[in-house]
Design a protein around this nucleic acid. Structure first.
Lengths: 207, 207
DNA sequence: AGCACAAAGTAAGCGACGCTTCCATTTGTG
DNA sequence: CACAAATGGAAGCGTCGCTTACTTTGTGCT
């Protein structure tokens, strides 16, 4: 039931979803700061106590958004990587670019997801799994001779820093000062990962 | 006048500073979330209305912290770069490592500084100046043949992403999961910037 | 069908917070 | 030494997170 349409029944129907959507709206309008349980309830057309039937407290709602955003991010990355084929370094790069694209396309989710106070244990294990997948790709690339034999943890960490940092600079508007908007996100991500990737190309005597 | 010592005079002496210090304490204890004007006033031993004689509102206090942190960061970076000598690529790398070291050593300042809502115009121009300095170093390195002829803006951006991302991962505790603590910050920063820097080394035929 | 019960809503209230207003005290200055 | 500016205190407004007590609605069981 969307905002504005008066609900006819005493029960809302899907208040949980409506609250999450309202919260995302508020985050996108006023930043994570500007979200309140009461305002979300107001937008969902229910009393100020109703949200607490679905979320024990404010942080629980934020954590729900964080988890939901993470699922969407993983789905987006899987999709892009399927498109990227099987070559490990191509997959590696596609993963990074997909990350940045997701952040720029879903700033509200990204903002909430990246607040450490809203990470629960389940999400941490998901992240750990994702890190393991990255390590596997790196090892595979190294085994095939397509990548330098650096410590995979260092390569993984550096790549993580790069894409996370880029995403944040976009989200926080630090690039808008330089006239770089969201529509240039993919091009910028491509350029930046290109420079970084060059440091991972082995130097063979014959080239 | 430090917390706990009762002040004897009606006037505090340096309430502005005491409030900033209390705010930093609160941020370090409970995150940026956990700071309130009233609690800061309480810790400074002053009524809840007193802070508003020094800061028009909560955000102004945060902005003051942000600006102060930025000054300290610039000072720390200047110092490290003086130690790094004159070779441009060494200076470039020292700058990045100094950035990460500052963040890890001053997490409360860093947290507040990196909230975009607390950046005022003056600080943005300072940042712009810092970016210009980075561009100058890059151009210098390129001119001397010590760095690839990439678009300096791309190199600068990638480096910024890298160190900012690394600092954030430290501050937000994402690396603690992997057993990486603050005392390893410099080593990790050195490793990560090493991999990145390799992509900026020109490939000459004779090597 | 009818009914007990769980789920999901409302109303009202508590304490904390941001901020304002008005008043009290102190202090630098002519 | 008078006085204005600076600084602090007291009290109050509206909002917020969250709780408690009560009401309404849907559901499963007999």
């Amino acid at each position: 039931m969307s905002r504005g349409t008066k609900r006819r029944s005493y029960h809302h129907g899907n208040l949980r979803r409506a609250l999450i959507d309202a919260a995302l709206e508020l985050v996108s309008e006023n930043g994570p700061h500007g979200f309140s349980m009461r305002e979300a309830a107001r937008r969902a057309g229910v009393s100020s106590g109703a949200p607490y039937k679905h979320f024990p407290d404010r942080d629980a709602l934020m954590r729900a958004i964080s988890a939901e955003g993470e699922q969407r991010l993983l789905a987006a990355m899987d999709e892009e990587m399927a498109r990227a084929g099987t070559e490990p370094t191509a997959r590696f790069r596609a993963m990074g670019i997909a990350y940045v694209k997701f952040a720029v396309a879903n700033p509200s989710y990204f903002r909430v997801m990246t607040m450490p106070e809203y990470l629960d244990a389940e999400q941490e294990t998901t992240i750990q799994g994702q890190e393991d997948a990255v390590h596997a790709i790196i090892s595979s690339a190294q085994a095939s001779g397509a990548m330098t034999a650096d410590d995979p943890r260092v390569v993984s960490l550096a790549a993580h820093c790069l894409v996370y940092g880029l995403a944040r600079l976009f989200i926080d508007g630090h690039l808008a000062r330089d006239g770089i908007g969201p529509q240039q996100a993919e091009a910028v991500a491509t350029a930046v990962t290109g420079v970084f990737g060059r440091g991972l190309v082995p130097r063979k005597p014959d080239q």
